[in-house]
Design a protein around this nucleic acid. Structure first.
Length: 554
RNA sequence: GCCCCCGUAGCUCAACCGGACAGAGCGGCGGACUUCUAAUCCGCGGGUUGCAGGUUCGAGUCCUGCCGGGGGCGCCA
């Protein structure tokens, strides 16, 4: 159980006890929120007495006192009451130090909690059209979704990461036509690119590879058939690239879900029939419409165009039917860029139409990224159809700064990503600041082992009473709770702020407390346990949570 | 026109979903390395939280209205 959970439980018990003994009037027990506070007030605090004043019809200070007096004895924390009615907790130094043993025992599982209760959640993210390399803008989506999946797993959800492959529809058709044109052109035939085709140089590269592997065999086929074959070949190449690029960013998926499969396995028809049964489908001007307004949507939507082609929205309905009804996820998180916000109310309407509680679907919206270099915006050359790809930025700055920088802003904030700054090894770049803390610990442990110290169980943790030692440990102790907050609010940016704060506390400890001191062997042993535990936390935070590297040497 | 997001220190942003005196980093100035790595640390300044009301014990946070910026309102995705 986390620190905040433990303290909240103590307060709840005290409330119940105080009520039973008549020190407080009876009222329904509220949910207790305990949050970190400033050092001058202690370590954790709750304003519950202030909130209860009205309902209990008592002065907040008296309520606070009543709670404090009925707190069960605890070796974890002491409590005190301050005006105008806060209940503050101060962790006991011995308890704080003793938690090192818990970290040693649990290892990287130490941060795990059970708030997810094993519920099955799907995080669907990136899902960019598989028509070419991933644009750098997609990196934010990838990092957000991936980090949230990591956090949700840690707090006790059963997580599935999914990429929705838009391998049906008009964009795919254009992709195939474009590829066919490039392929034919390479073989000397004067084939025009389709209107609004994919003009990027990479299309020529795909075509070249197909020529290398298959020669001109597709030119002999009927055009339609050739386009279909090239579409499939091209799609596979794109997916292969996407997987590699995302893997280089530290992002992996459990499932790549094919849009086309929704049509091939009859899901689409089934959902259409279902909506028809409910009277939510009608025909107008040759198109098939979804009566979204009948289920709370802002306006009706076209499902099947008058051309007979289903739109993306039709697929999305079938897709979400598959997620909730067929696969039965308890909770689904779709990660979308903010320019898709207009789609949110539509999807909520879809949920109602399908008879699924709309709260089971969360749309995580995030703001856009603009790429800069030395403060100047990097212009994309639209004419050539070339874009700044994730791969290019990966090659230039590496995955660590990308991941960290894209998590330093709240989801609603825009991000200026400066290529020059990302690799700059300066104070302005927090990536190295955090990694350096890990490296410093590695250095200490290297030196200690070289000098014959053992890093293990024999250190006496009760010696760790220095304010800098305590402050560092207390910061560590907040991580499990922070992960819960991040999961509840889907706000992973708190993690990078935390990482910086943890590094700051370590650097302060480093300044104040020398670890290896032959004059004080017992203290040295204790501090070696401390820094080894903190190193584990840094590695866990950097590698398992933020998906970065934790270097031994810098 | 309607809907959504944002407006906080010179700059970039936080503020744990209504709590205590609004915090970091960067930039500016001045200091600290014969030490377990100075990619670090210490000190100094800096604010009418866009404006005006409202809700209450208490508002950067919630409500209303304005101002300013971005996004969305398609048989595109």
């Amino acid at each position: 159980m986390t620190v905040r959970q433990e303290l909240a439980k103590l307060v709840e018990r005290a409330l119940r006890e105080a009520q039973e003994q008549g020190a407080l009037p009876s009222f329904p027990l509220p949910s207790v929120e305990v949050t970190p506070t400033k050092p001058e007030f202690g370590d954790y605090s709750t304003s519950l007495p202030l909130q209860l004043a009205r309902m209990a019809r008592m002065a907040p200070m008296r309520i606070a006192e009543a709670i404090r007096e009925h707190l069960p004895p605890s070796d974890m924390a002491t409590a005190e009451v301050t005006a105008p009615g806060f209940l503050n907790f101060r962790l006991k130094p011995q308890w704080v130090a003793s938690q090192i043993a818990a970290i040693e025992k649990a290892g990287r599982d130490w941060t795990r909690s059970q708030v997810g209760e094993g519920r099955r959640v799907q995080v669907e993210f990136v899902s960019a059209n598989p028509t070419g390399p991933l644009h750098f803008g997609g990196a934010r989506n990838a990092v957000l979704g991936d980090t949230m999946a990591r956090v949700l797993d840690i707090v006790g959800y059963q997580v599935q990461r999914e990429y929705y492959v838009n391998d049906a529809g008009t964009q795919m058709r254009k992709f195939g036509e474009s590829l066919y044109a490039r392929y034919a052109q390479l073989l000397g035939r004067d084939e025009p690119m389709p209107e609004d085709g994919y003009m990027g140089q990479y299309m020529v590269e795909y075509a070249r590879r197909i020529v290398e592997e298959h020669g001109d065999t597709f030119l002999a086929l009927p055009r339609e058939e050739a386009v279909q074959k090239l579409t499939d070949l091209g799609l596979n190449m794109v997916l292969e690239e996407l997987k590699q690029d995302l893997a280089a960013l530290g992002v992996r998926f459990d499932n790549w879900f094919s849009e086309r499969s929704l049509y091939e396995d009859g899901t689409f028809e089934r959902v259409l029939a279902l909506l028809r049964e409910k009277g939510l489908i009608y025909e107008k001007e040759g198109a098939l419409w979804f009566a979204a307004t009948q289920v709370g949507g802002p306006k009706d939507e076209v499902l099947v165009r008058s051309s007979g082609e289903p739109g993306y929205f039709a697929s999305d309905i079938a897709y979400h039917y598959n997620k909730f009804v067929i696969r039965g996820f308890d909770w689904v998180i779709d990660v979308w860029a903010v320019d898709h916000q207009g789609h949110v109310p539509r999807m909520k309407a879809v949920m109602k139409a399908l008879g699924v509680d709309p709260d089971r679907l969360t749309i995580l919206l995030y703001n856009l990224v603009t790429l800069k270099r030395h403060g100047e915006e990097v212009k994309l050359s639209k004419r050539a159809g070339d874009i700044i790809t994730l791969r290019e930025v990966l090659d230039e700055v590496g995955p660590d700064p990308i991941r960290f920088m894209l998590l330093t802003r709240s989801n609603t904030a825009k991000i200026d990503f400066d290529l020059a700054l990302a690799v700059e090894q300066s104070q302005e770049n927090p990536v190295y600041y955090v990694q350096y803390a890990h490296t410093r610990i590695a250095g200490i442990l290297r030196k200690a082992r070289a000098e014959g110290w053992t890093v293990g169980e024999e250190g006496d943790l009760s010696l760790l009473t220095h304010p800098s030692e305590q402050a560092l440990l207390k910061k560590v102790l907040d991580l499990p709770d922070l992960l819960i907050t991040v999961a509840e609010r889907l706000e992973p940016h708190h993690l990078t702020y935390y990482a910086q704060e943890l590094a700051t506390h370590f650097h302060a400890f480093y300044r104040d407390c020398r670890v290896i001191d032959p004059e004080a062997p017992e203290l040295t042993q204790a501090r070696l346990r401390l820094v080894a535990a903190v190193k584990l936390i840094f590695a866990h935070l950097l590698e398992d949570i933020l998906g970065m590297t934790a270097p031994e040497v810098m």
